[in-house]
Amino acid sequence: MREIILFVLGFLAVAVLLMAVVGQYHSQDGKHHHKIGHKHGEGVVIDMHAYASKIRGWNPTFKVSLAMVLLILCIALNNPCVSVAVLIAMAYLTMVKGGLSVNEYLSVLMIPITFILLGTLAIAIEFSFDPIGQFNLHCGFFYIYTSQEKLKEMIFLILKVFAAVSALQMMTLSTPSSEIISVMRKAHVPKLIIELMNIIYRYIFILLDVYSKMKNSADSRQGYCDFKTSCYTFGGIAGNMLIISLKKANAYYDAMEARCYDGEMIFLEEEKKIEINQIIMAVIFVAVLFLLWGLTK
């Protein structure tokens, strides 16, 4: 039974990958994909993907709750088949529905790979002074040993983590931060945190901008010519950033007051309609996960 299910899931994975590749090929063939902005760093790239995603128009509450439910199911059910199914479904949503290219999706998904590998290796591998275990490797005066059971556990754990991560990536790659924040507001997260999140999100880009300007101007004056100077310049920039952020905070407050701000930040939030068939699909998917879990328990 388990083999059949794994085979079907593997087939589905290949199918999704193919669909994503073909979709990408077509979209490049037809019209050029219009990208906005320029690259700053990995985090900002994710932000850009969220704005460019084709499933951005979906109701954010639906996307966030779906991601949360899947995340919890991945952990709670603790079943490799469920993990693989979630991985495939999320890849389908992000690449085929969302229109993200395969390369970009894989590169975003690979961000946590170092942490995951380091963390799981510690589970699979153990050290000993005696040659024990199913497999062992002699390393001078000690042995590294492991067993099939342990390796299996490690691979299942990797699958579980990747499935959980991919559920969250589906959310972040299709929902701009402002919408995620509005969902949190609906979930009655304290107002203070919501306002802080809004301002911090906006501020990140302003500070990045200021930083890159200062860095460029320091660079053009040989501020990074050797290690010592670089350290010195970095310190100077960091100090300056603090002063500038204080000044900017003041300017911001003035601008907000000028527009009748009176202590409460309220933003217009768009109402995005939730579609019944999306909910039905999500419910069916969750039911399928439970079924998979039941069959392979």
Partner: peptide, 16 residues
């Protein structure tokens, strides 16, 4: 940049 506070243009114009 000292005036724009919201994270979409629509929400920004709606702030006032």
């Amino acid at each position: 940049d000292n005036q724009i506070i919201a994270s979409t243009v629509r929400a920004e114009v709606a702030f006032g």
